[in-house]
């Protein structure tokens, strides 16, 4: 079910939590809201669910305006950050809750509720847990119960707030793939909030990057990574070194850093006009060759092998640059000649 957000704003006291949010999600899409903490992503999700309220702007879900529709009438599946399972109910009762609180007229008979709950628990791979209490199961299992509970009301839209935030790395990876498959099989429309860029890249069809209450960029994971829309996105994603530089006469000059200039043709992106810029250079975009002490501009501090490459910390003047280099003769302590292959430039 499609979601259309137009001009959405939200203030908390003097803090602008969301500002002029424009976002359209097509039915069947899996969209990540990615941003640092405090960027407003959870607030946006809560407004969609009817758990918080906008000061301005509109939300349409499935073509229906949501203004004045309380959370309980929206029928949206919401998975809370810490799952918010009902602690006094068994897993079965948790999942059945949304069906049991329906008005008598639309409430399925108890036998059908039971069948649906069991089917869902089966689908989640946890049929054996139905009699347990939330405190008696693991974090990953709770996550599945929370998902089953949200899906029991057959929501056209699924919202997930940091769905893997409370899990350890191994469980997180397994659940991630599983959630993506579930989304496809059940033809859901899903939005999830995360601060973990790797997670957003691995799961989402499109990623919306939030910066201080605004959407800085919304694009496919590849585009967000390759063509960041502004300096914030470039800095937030892909672990790039950020260097001050000057764009003039068709080249980037890194002075006073002792780096060779880069011609404009080598750049991934750059402003049209000359002037001071910030250059973002990712780890794999560096090259370093051994050099005599007189010609060297940097010193390799330390290096360790990483998948056929060399993960190196290189001292460049007072800066330390992380570089992912092809395996070579360099070793810790070697003076070297460091140069960027390319860069993404944004006006400073």
């Amino acid at each position: 079910m499609s979601v259309i957000i137009r001009g959405l704003s939200r203030r908390f006291g003097s803090a602008q939590a969301l500002q002029d949010i424009e976002l359209s999600v097509r039915a069947g899409e899996f969209v990540a809201l990615l941003g640092p903490s405090g960027s407003g992503k959870t607030t946006l999700l809560r407004i969609l669910a009817g758990l918080d309220f906008a000061d301005g702007g509109t939300v349409q879900i499935g073509g229906v305006p949501m203004e004045g529709v309380p959370a309980r009438r929206r029928g949206i599946g919401f998975v809370f950050q810490n799952y918010a399972l009902f602690r006094h109910m068994t897993v079965f009762e948790n999942v059945a809750f949304g069906l049991r609180v329906r008005p008598r007229a639309s409430r399925p008979p108890e036998a059908e509720i039971a069948a649906r709950v069991r089917r869902l628990l089966e689908r989640m791979g946890i049929p054996e847990l139905e009699r347990r209490l939330p405190e008696q199961i693991s974090g990953g299992q709770r996550q599945r119960v929370a998902l089953a509970r949200a899906l029991a009301i057959e929501p056209p839209l699924l919202l997930l707030d940091e769905p893997f935030g409370a899990l350890d790395a191994a469980v997180r990876h397994g659940l991630r793939r599983w959630l993506r498959e579930l989304h496809n099989e059940m033809s859901l429309t899903s939005l999830f909030v995360t601060h973990d860029q790797e997670e957003a890249m691995a799961l989402a069809d499109r990623v919306a990057v939030l910066q201080a209450g605004r959407i800085a960029q919304i694009d496919t994971p590849e585009m967000v990574l390759e063509r960041p829309a502004n300096a914030f996105v470039a800095g937030f994603l892909g672990q790039a070194a950020r260097l001050p530089a000057m764009l003039r006469d068709g080249a980037v000059d890194f002075a006073p850093l002792p780096l060779p200039p880069l011609p404009r043709e080598a750049l991934v992106s750059a402003p049209d006009r000359d002037g001071p810029v910030q250059a973002f250079i990712r780890a794999h975009e560096w090259r370093a060759e051994p050099a005599a002490p007189g010609q060297a501009n940097a010193v390799l501090r330390s290096a360790r092998p990483s998948g056929g490459m060399l993960q190196a910390d290189i001292a460049l003047g007072e800066l330390t640059v992380e570089a992912l280099l092809p395996a070579g003769p360099l070793r810790a302590g070697s003076p070297c000649l460091l140069r960027p292959l390319t860069a993404r430039l944004f006006p400073a």
């Binding site: 203030r11 908390f12 809560r46 758990l51 918080d52 309220f53 000061d55 004045g68 959370a71």
Partner: peptide
């Protein structure tokens, strides 16, 4: 919920403006 939020609500929605 900021106090100002309650000012621009329609009748009956004042309570919901306080929170969900």
């Amino acid at each position: 919920a900021p106090p100002s939020a309650a000012l621009r609500t329609r009748p009956g929605s004042l309570a919901s403006r306080r929170g969900p």
